[in-house]
Design a protein around this nucleic acid. Structure first.
Lengths: 242, 242
DNA sequence: ATGGCCAACTTGTTATGACAGGTCATGATT
DNA sequence: AATCATGACCTGTCATAACAAGTTGGCCAT
């Protein structure tokens, strides 16, 4: 969080900024160890508390992480997914050479609530299939996806290996459903304890929430879902034209 | 971040937890002032650094917010999450009959840090103009925008009425700079106290953060900014194609 | 009654110091 | 060669202390 209005920057702020610059300039590789607190004390000629404050803020920013007894290490750059393309998570991540997997938490049929029914153009209370998955990138959880589809699709999905395959790919390749477009709504939320646990986060951590309604080529809704995404290890990117 | 696998909880952790419990039990009302650090030192029989660490973590959790010179205050309960429709900010807002305005907080020239310089393809430390604005929708703050442009653009913008006019419109209509595309990166963050105050939010509230680098028609970067957007009073939406 | 000043109180920053507990390389022992 | 102990080095916690800067109520002058 920038606060660049201060004329007189505290020492720890200067050190924090300089270290961030140094790291971003490539002086240290991802997961490379930074100089120890003692080294930085001598290097900057300040007390340890000042160094610790600077490092603590960089840790808070996600630039580095600390390991007791070992030191501070540069965090990996965040993987990202292009938002403008309607792509399954696996499709997008494989393009970048990442390893992806899913943990299927639950798949069941239940009555559609008003929102789901409206989105999928079903009667309220009509049966829908709900999928709950944690998506993992390089073995680290990055999102909790909750998906609803009509039961005739859900029945077929239930027979698939959803741990390693994307719903979109299955719909298109196996069931011949040509996808058209999706409508997204994006905002931010705090992780509740259950979600935080699933995503290896502390309760209250910031999450990006994406609501996505995906349509087939004829404009009929086929898939309604919420994606709760971590921001500390993943982000979305988008290029827009004027 | 405390290591919660520890059988013996550090002192600051005990104090943090006890204060949180006390606050949640209603001993203090929202916005009520907590005991001072000095009081807490005596009350718990610990040093000030220990109290500050406990308070700092509660602040990070959003349970309280600190005001220099005044004290620590209990945060208000988080506002109820609402969804609002947003397309392009000014366009969509006026289209729907909303009133939009800006509050210009600050416009100044300062040396570009590494990130800003890299994005705007300037030398580190080169002068850039920084704009800080709060965007209001129906008189309610919805985002804090921090914008950097090259000084030759900033000088001209400084002469404009930025409270009611959009930077993009000025650049295109008044200065003949044809805008091309923008690159966005999207994630979620917690609001720090200063930003929270500007957006009439509680510290620790979830914010959508959009990093935007806008280019002219030739692909040259002209405008780099961070938009810190509330999620409780509007959201972003997007339609994407397969 | 009002405004200005100042002391007391507030949090923020920084220094020095010490101890606890974790990590790991090296040397000694089996 | 494998294992264990030790010492050096690492971060985490906590104490004491001092100064900086912001806030505010009381007192005094006008």
């Amino acid at each position: 969080m920038p606060d660049s209005r201060r004329a007189a920057q505290p020492l720890y702020g200067r050190i924090r900024d300089e270290l961030r610059t140094t790291i971003h300039a490539g002086a240290y590789l991802p997961h490379e160890r930074l100089p120890s607190e003692s080294d930085l004390m001598f290097r900057y000629g300040v007390s340890r508390i000042t160094v610790r404050q600077a490092l603590g803020e960089l840790e808070k920013e996600g630039v580095l992480f600390k390991v007791p007894g070992k030191g501070a290490f540069v965090s990996k750059p965040k993987p990202f997914q292009q938002l403008a393309r309607l792509q399954g998570f696996a499709e997008a991540m494989r393009e970048h050479g990442h390893e992806i997997s899913n943990r299927l938490l639950d798949i069941r049929t239940l009555p559609a609530d008003a929102t789901v029914a409206e989105r999928l153009q079903l009667a309220p209370g009509a049966p829908v299939t709900e999928l709950r998955r944690v998506r993992l990138l390089n073995r680290e959880p990055v999102s909790l996806d909750i998906t609803w589809v009509a039961p005739h699709i859900g029945e077929r999905l239930a027979r698939e290996d959803l741990a390693s395959r994307d719903v979109f790919v299955i719909l298109e390749n196996d069931y011949g459903i040509a996808l058209g477009h999706a409508d997204l709504a994006i905002d931010a939320q705090l992780a509740d304890p259950a979600t935080a646990k699933l995503l290896a986060l502390d309760p209250g951590a910031p999450l990006l929430r994406i609501e996505r309604l995906t349509h087939d080529r004829h404009g009929h809704p086929v898939d309604f879902e919420y994606l709760y995404c971590r921001s500390d290890n993943f982000q979305f990117r988008l290029r827009i034209a004027r």
